[in-house]
Amino acid sequence: MLSERPPKIPESVLVVIHSPALEVLLIERADRPGYWQSVTGSKDRPDEPLVDTCIREVAEETGIEIGSAAVPREQLVDWGLRNVYEIYPVWRHRYAPGVTHNTEHVFGLQVPRDIPVRLTPREHLQHAWLPWRAAADRCFSPSNAEAILMLPRFAGHGEAGSA
């Protein structure tokens, strides 16, 4: 039986959404309760610009509109980090046969702490704002936790590890 969806593209974005005070927005996966993460998502097509992937995924997963008055486009910053990792076996069926690794591009997005968050119930159960170290500890993904630990440096708060 053929799948209705085309295989996922093994190139994705990770968007660390944070407040000016370095509180990080985490969302809990609906398909894996207890698995907390930042916004992630794959390109819809191979030539989709990464910035467009970020804008689409942040809007779909949180309801936050990048490019709005509350969140100017300039608040989305490409951190220039790339992670190549093995796709968890439980999710490999979403990709073409033989695809085992994904390339993840890391971005940061500063938003007002009081911005409304609207989750898509089929994708996420709940959200939480946590201080950056606590957020890193809660993430199930090692690359997501690493990115959050780098937040102070990329947000202009000195070296990672200080706060």
Results as ranks from 00 to 15, higher is better:
2 L>I: 12
5 R>S: 15
7 P>V: 11
8 K>G: 11
9 I>W: 02
10 P>W: 02
11 E>T: 13
13 V>M: 06
16 V>H: 04
18 H>P: 01
18 H>W: 06
19 S>R: 04
20 P>C: 02
20 P>A: 07
21 A>L: 04
22 L>V: 06
28 E>W: 01
29 R>A: 14
29 R>G: 02
31 D>W: 07
32 R>L: 11
32 R>V: 15
33 P>K: 03
33 P>D: 05
35 Y>R: 13
36 W>Q: 11
37 Q>E: 10
37 Q>F: 02
37 Q>C: 03
38 S>D: 06
39 V>L: 09
41 G>L: 00
42 S>V: 12
45 R>A: 11
46 P>D: 14
47 D>C: 08
47 D>L: 13
48 E>H: 05
49 P>S: 02
49 P>W: 00
50 L>C: 12
50 L>Q: 07
51 V>T: 14
51 V>A: 14
53 T>P: 12
53 T>K: 04
54 C>P: 03
55 I>R: 14
55 I>Y: 00
55 I>H: 03
57 E>D: 07
58 V>W: 01
59 A>Y: 10
63 G>F: 07
66 I>P: 05
68 S>L: 04
69 A>D: 08
71 V>H: 00
71 V>P: 01
71 V>W: 01
72 P>I: 03
72 P>H: 09
74 E>P: 01
74 E>M: 01
75 Q>C: 06
76 L>F: 01
81 L>E: 15
86 E>P: 06
87 I>F: 03
90 V>Y: 11
96 A>R: 09
99 V>I: 15
100 T>C: 06
103 T>P: 03
103 T>A: 14
105 H>M: 11
106 V>D: 05
108 G>Y: 04
108 G>S: 13
110 Q>Y: 00
111 V>M: 04
112 P>S: 07
114 D>E: 08
115 I>C: 02
116 P>N: 04
116 P>C: 07
120 T>P: 01
120 T>H: 13
121 P>D: 04
123 E>R: 13
123 E>D: 13
124 H>A: 14
125 L>H: 05
126 Q>A: 15
127 H>F: 09
129 W>N: 02
131 P>F: 01
131 P>N: 04
133 R>H: 12
135 A>Q: 01
135 A>C: 09
136 A>I: 01
138 R>W: 06
140 F>T: 08
141 S>K: 10
141 S>T: 10
143 S>G: 03
144 N>H: 15
146 E>Q: 15
151 L>D: 09
152 P>W: 02
155 A>M: 03
156 G>M: 10
157 H>P: 00
158 G>C: 00
160 A>F: 12
160 A>Q: 13
160 A>L: 13
